[in-house]
Write a protein that binds this DNA or RNA. Structure first.
Lengths: 347, 347
DNA sequence: GAGTTTTATCATAGCGCTACGATTTTATCA
DNA sequence: TGATAAAATCGTAGCGCTATGATAAAACTC
């Protein structure tokens, strides 16, 4: 109906396009494109000419155009609860390091432990036709799971194993086992009464699993085992608060061993103990989780359980790269990175 | 020359496109697009129909196509040394929180304090025709600076003020002043001999500036002031090492005040002091930088200088949003977020 | 040196969307 | 009611690139 024959004015995005480079180098645009994607497929002479033209014109390719034409982009969506959390920061750093080698970029999203936000972030990530998706955890809202299942890209769920079946691939460890290992360790060190400290009681599912594992193992060993938790994030401050609460509740009780949902809580406990002049590990043994960087240099040095956040990131990257190489024929791997018990002075 | 009249087979990226939605809703694709971008420009009846079609088909728009057509994308490139660094993690989190409201996504890159990597990351970010760029620091390599200057997008340099002139906009504070404030504080608390601890001596320019400010202010006050530094990253462990070194070098010296390049070093110092049974603040006063989450709950509680990392992120986001709204007419703002001296027990 | 294979380069048709201006519909007024 | 203004919808032409298959050039055969 609307039959306009008038040429519109072009809206130009870029200063220098591939066409400009091609003209400069005296070749066709296809050749420039080919050189950029597979330099070895182009003759040395032409390759050099193109390279020179690119440099002279300061050409920066447009990845949106490339991604659109190629039906896939070079972004990997990474969705974690928060990068302020040192655990995830480490994994994100490893991912970027490894994926960067393959010229893949990271598009980051933080859920802040909100399932609605998570769904939105997944949807947004998918809007970029990402090469792959990395998401923390295996328990997601129904909408998120649906989106992820329908997505025709590799999906790697990280930092957690067990629970719901992985959607595609998974790299992580069993938090329940972490808790159990902590309880058993304290028992082995002669503690007969166990307490678990945790924060963010409502939304950190992984912390909840560590707690569950700790409590179950403690009871299995026939020990009185209890849980002190709080809805606030698991910080040093909260560690102090929980330790104080514990002191009040367990006044006079001997042989207490404390498992902490993370090293920050443990650190806070250590400080509170100092303030109260309670000896650690003599009166109370403490074990954390995370092996955060201060754990080794605390006084007393903190016993803890070490996850391998860096390894999780690099293994996830490896799986992604492999999936991309294998195409449809890829397998649905699940990798257990395990954890290590680091026995220091607090237990 | 190559005149092929044969229709090629289409390579389909997406299951459901905007055309499908339009058909389902009984409107034209343009209307769907319009509804997505400016829902208020579409009649209520049509809007509902489109909305319903989107939901029923589970349509996910392709942002690459959108960005390409619109000559700008909804990504903001964020380039920081490392998210493992709590300072940057906080700013990144704030950025994502604020920018997310405007449906902007963050594309993250870590330089790991390498200038070559930084240039590559800037180049990659520019390949996405980003809506804006956020980069840590004001001192960049020549290539990076050139790229940023030529980029026709808002650029916000964060976490640092002073030094080289900002390329476009800047949000941060003067690290030199932080160091000076720390020195003056220690002097005011009666310390007559000052020492500054820092790590990553070679590549953390901002830490170097804090050191310079500390040393200059100390000397200006007529105090003997010295610098203990180390090439390793500024960790708790390094804090302990530097404190031990200081003890050896300054044996018997009274009234020593220690400034630390960050709270991790300060924490390590505290622990080392405990181990050596040296009283803080009686024998040695300590002040850190960062007000990391443990600072308030240490024993003794750590005096420190608080940057406002979160504020830096949200102000940067505000500037970006304003720039995008104002278009070409935008101003080249520079915002000093300042810092706060938090006096606790270690000084 | 003509025929055959291999290698290098090219022309074209979209990828899915948005901006633009044109067209149609609805509201307002004389 | 017809003329005019305002609002809603539509059709088209790319955005800059890549995949594809066609052509041209070079490297082998016998």
């Amino acid at each position: 109906m609307a039959g306009s024959a008038v040429p519109r004015k072009r809206r130009k995005i870029q200063g220098v396009t591939m066409v400009d480079v091609a003209r400069r180098a005296g070749v066709s645009p296809s050749t420039v494109s080919l050189f950029l994607r597979r330099p070895e497929a182009v003759s040395l002479k032409v390759g050099d000419a193109v390279q020179a033209a690119i440099r002279e014109l300061n050409y920066v390719p447009n990845l949106m155009a490339g991604g659109l034409a190629a039906a896939s982009s070079s972004v990997v969506g990474v969705i974690v609860p928060s990068v302020r959390n040192a655990f995830f920061a480490e994994t994100v750093a490893a991912l970027q390091r490894e994926l960067g080698q393959a010229r893949l970029q990271i598009m980051l999203g933080h859920t802040e432990y909100d399932q609605g936000v998570e769904t939105e972030l997944v949807r947004t990530a998918l809007s970029w036709a990402p090469a792959a998706l990395v998401i923390a955890g295996t328990e997601h809202g129904k909408a998120t799971r649906q989106l992820l299942e329908a997505a025709r890209v590799p999906v790697v769920q990280v930092w957690e194993l067990g629970g719901e079946a992985p959607i595609d691939m998974a790299v992580g460890f069993h938090h329940y086992e972490v808790g159990a290992a902590a309880a058993r360790h304290l028992a082995a060190r002669g503690r007969r009464r166990l307490v678990f400290f945790s924060g963010r009681a409502n939304d950190d599912k992984r912390a909840a699993q560590r707690a569950a594992g700790f409590l179950a193992a403690g009871r299995e060993l026939g020990l009185v085992t209890q849980h002190l938790s709080h809805p606030a994030p698991a910080t040093t401050e909260l560690g102090g608060i929980l330790f104080a609460r514990m002191l009040k509740e367990l006044e006079g009780v001997e042989g207490v061993g404390i498992g902490c949902s993370n090293d920050l809580l443990a650190l806070g406990s250590l400080f509170e103990a100092q303030r109260r002049q309670v000896a650690i590990p003599q009166q109370y043994a403490v074990i954390g989780f995370g092996d955060l960087e201060f754990a080794a240099s605390c006084n007393p040095a903190l016993s803890t359980i070490k996850p391998f956040g860096d390894l999780i990131g690099s293994e996830a990257a490896r799986l992604i790269l492999k999936s991309l190489a294998d195409g449809e024929a890829r397998e649905h791997a699940s990798i257990d990175t395990g954890f290590g018990l680091v026995h220091r002075q607090t237990s």
